[in-house]
Design a protein around this nucleic acid. Structure first.
Lengths: 124, 124
DNA sequence: TAACTACTTAGGCATTTAGCTAAGTAAAAT
DNA sequence: ATTTTACTTAGCTAAATGCCTAAGTAGTTA
């Protein structure tokens, strides 16, 4: 269950055009990252991509993309797994699904089950 | 249908703790804004609240809350309607519902229908 | 009309963010 | 063992953000 601060972190991560496009690229730009040459059977989903592959699609420097990816990972909407000297990146579909459920629940029950989304009712 | 920039605007709006809490307050803190004294039948949903009523729950100045509410309105996740000299604020439940649907769809079809969420597939 | 209520706009300041280059680390290839 | 590849960290700068107070507008009440 995502708490308020986890949600805010996700919104902050996706509230920047560059990071939104990187996130888009993680979903759409897979299949292009070459796998390990020595061990072509390395277990990586066909969706996985890596930092430099993503960076190729942008006009920003590699460190900038790396830093943005770190934020997406800290928001838990992508996963990053090191294999050899590459880092394979995949969307964290479960977080996305959960977020979708939160919004839908909030909309469905906005006048009766408000605390389901927000936690306790007081703001202060 | 929310386009990419509308989504980014929503994420930017909710990616700040103060605005998130204001948004929460719009959902949870209704029922507390007194209606027009002269015309108590003024048509306002029981969920409606107003700027100063929201501001009462925060330690920030009224102009700060007002500016944040403007951002939430521009992101189209709350509506603001002037009646008399008050502005009645309500959550825009349809935008919230649509956003929930976007995330759920993205999760459900993340490998086949990716363009449904992102629009065209190229990033550049 | 004068004063009050509700809200916004303007302008200023401190902090955060988003980009860069250069330097550092770790694994792979030669 | 050295070089190369893949990525991160450090440190910088410009721009954006989030807050404030003071002043302005619009509608209401007296």
């Amino acid at each position: 269950m995502l708490d308020m601060y986890q949600k805010i972190k996700i919104f902050k991560a996706l509230g920047n055009e560059t990071r939104f496009l990187i996130f888009k690229n993680v979903f759409t730009g897979g299949y292009t990252c070459s796998l390990d040459k020595k061990d072509p059977n390395v277990k990586v989903s066909p969706h996985a991509t890596c930092v430099s592959t993503i960076a190729e699609h942008f006009d920003f420097s590699l460190p900038t993309i790396s830093k943005h990816l770190k934020e997406l990972r800290e928001a838990n909407i992508v996963t990053m797994e090191k294999k050899g000297n590459k880092i394979y990146i995949e969307p964290n579909v479960e977080t996305i699904r959960e977020l979708g459920g939160c919004f839908t629940t909030l909309a469905d029950n906005f006048d009766t089950n408000r605390e389901l989304f927000f936690g306790e009712l007081t703001v202060s």
